[in-house]
Amino acid sequence: MPTKTRPTEKLKPSAKIAWRKVADEAVILNTETAAYYSLDGAGLRIWELLSEGRSIEEIVGTLADEYDASSEVLRRDALDLLSNLRKEKIVEPA
């Protein structure tokens, strides 16, 4: 069963991940499976903050300052995205 991501958790890019910011996107490569992905907009911002070692709650707080959406919506969407990143083995517990 997939692990549910909790708001208090800290996640980090997995050791097998290589990524670069290209224009306004994060291009992410899983060096083990050779699968590649991209994130843009708020997804890119979440990824940058995650890479800086921020917790999910800190990320939601930063997004709330920058984006025109409520904290509830931002938290729900961030957790959805992080669960997806976890399922694809792009992030792991910090």
């Binding site: 699968a35 590649y36 992905y37 994130l39 708020a42 979440i46 984006y67 959805d80 995205l81 990143l85």
Partner: peptide, 20 residues
């Protein structure tokens, strides 16, 4: 003073193949 928000989505583009 805020950016318009759109739900973030992970886009998967496929698997890279190495050509020797």
């Amino acid at each position: 003073g805020k950016k318009p928000y759109k739900k973030p989505q992970l886009s998967k583009h496929g698997v890279l193949s190495i050509v020797e």
